[in-house]
Design a protein around this nucleic acid. Sequence first.
DNA 1: TTGTATGCGTTATCAA
DNA 2: TTGATAACGCATACAA
Lengths: 354, 354
Amino acid sequence: MTSPTPAPSATPGTPRARATIADVAAEAGVSKATVSRYFNHRERLLSPDIAARVEAAIAKLAYVPSPMAQALSHGRSRLIGLVVADITNPYSVAVLRGAEKACQEAGYLVMLFNLGNDRERERAAIDALASYQVDGFILNTLGQGEGLADVNTLHGKPAVLVDRRHAGLAADFVALDNEAAMRETCAHLVEQGWQSLLYVTQPLQGVSSRLERTAAFRACIAAQGPKVRGEVLEIDAQQGEDALARALAEFREREGSKVRCAVVAGNSVVTLRVAAAVARLQWTFGQELGFVGFDDPEWAPLIRPGLSTVAQPTDAIGQRAAQCLLERIGGLQGAVRENLLPGTLIVRGSSLGV
Amino acid sequence: MTSPTPAPSATPGTPRARATIADVAAEAGVSKATVSRYFNHRERLLSPDIAARVEAAIAKLAYVPSPMAQALSHGRSRLIGLVVADITNPYSVAVLRGAEKACQEAGYLVMLFNLGNDRERERAAIDALASYQVDGFILNTLGQGEGLADVNTLHGKPAVLVDRRHAGLAADFVALDNEAAMRETCAHLVEQGWQSLLYVTQPLQGVSSRLERTAAFRACIAAQGPKVRGEVLEIDAQQGEDALARALAEFREREGSKVRCAVVAGNSVVTLRVAAAVARLQWTFGQELGFVGFDDPEWAPLIRPGLSTVAQPTDAIGQRAAQCLLERIGGLQGAVRENLLPGTLIVRGSSLGV
DNA sequence: TTGTATGCGTTATCAA
DNA sequence: TTGATAACGCATACAA
């Protein structure tokens, strides 16, 4: 009680500092090294009785090693740096969720850096994360070769790319199998009798997922032969929703009233805007316009007659990304791996034939 | 060039390790302490010429102090621990976004821990975060007194509570002004001629925001006198959407066809479920059922004739939370602060009179 | 099998 | 004003 040294007594109420390895060593009557070994080389080189004493001391003091100190000493921090292009995007969040979960389960914590779609900050993000000695990166960001010029940028840490590839960066990659999903989507629409397809996408801007989906769409159209027509429309955030409405109206007029027209939306952002435009036009999905959208927002069933969508296995993507990264952190060598996960076409009313 | 020691030369290609304070000291021909002072006490106790030399060395080596080492030595990590109850909830994400942004701008990084609605992990979350020496916590979680028994749990670090209060925890609090928002909502509905109001909420379960909104609803009804009736309905995730549809139908039948009935949804989760139930009933908002929902999901304008909502200033809430916390970290003492931010009633078609 | 000593990158205390 | 030097909490050679 009157001891001048802050003895780690079990005084509740006193928010005493965390026990350190030295406290445990003293409590168990062994050296710090022994306590350290208890954690790192347990069975291999520790006698049972000593191990038991250490274990008891650890339990008594509720000792938990400091990851910061471990990071300083040993290099590893059990920290994963997660850079996301836009945390406003539900897709990113869904992936983040899966990744964070997998990391948590593996005893890693996630440090988050949101770019807010600002490419300039990408380099800063990685540097900031690296300064905390993260063991690796999960990157859902960019398209161009701007920030991530080369592996050097990553400070020698492993990384996994999610959803968006990067030319200069040889890293494991996890994403939706865009080509297969697009094939299934187009096949379904054609089968249901839609004859002219309009693929609406956000500006390509070198974003690999957008490029791939667009290319896959064009390939599908080409494969169908002359009986099916296809167009691509890029929209950007600037133009209002009536600009899109006009574009859709023109599309239908161009094709003529005999031709059944459908839209394929490149992601949930586009889906929202198309739905708004269609509402403004007073059209009904499945009638004036067929529809399938990539991503499956929770409100898709609410827009009559229900929006058909391609659901991404976001949780699996996130978990797979984390798993890939953890394997690399664990020392796995070898060629870059490519994980293309299958989407699920959810057919609701908007894509059905009349 | 031929120096055997790994001189920090500007060899690109070689992923050389980060420069340390010792490298800078050597480069500038001063001691490590001097370099440290350059960062921490710059002008106060450093001669201009030495400062210039240090500055040059820092620039040349692109030196950045290691936050990990700083944390070890000096206690502060420039890390904020963010615990969120459910990252699937767009509200949480929106707040997170504002908070993360503010932290980033202040030079702090955010460590994320998602509870996935699992209360058991709350204590573990805080402990895990604390082990990384976070400087403070932003907590958006729980209701009951389970995990966060007392301030002791926080390892002596400051915290700010977002959206949900906690009885045993005297910490700054940031949230929507639920009472004012509910008052405005009810006044609007009554003014538009809705006579019987049903407040639909997720299970209260001691969650303060749910309790407050429910209490505010009851108070509003009471204040209106006998001309307006009000009921509260708790729904849980278990029951299917037709259970809710039945409940809504019964509600209308009970009140009779003469009485204009409206629903107030407690948050966006409830809004989604009510919208699904109304679709199933083939009702139209604003006709068979009036509607105002807390939270303003992006799809609210798409459900005809447009869903009226109370939008929360999520970004401001997040930023304010971060600001509060950073002030406390900066040493601010004094009584716990309560930040109630105003919501915005967005009137669309669903709440208008006939 | 266990203990001692050293280093990881910083800050802080104490001399000079 | 500046420079040694000792922590900070841990892991790991090395010695015993």
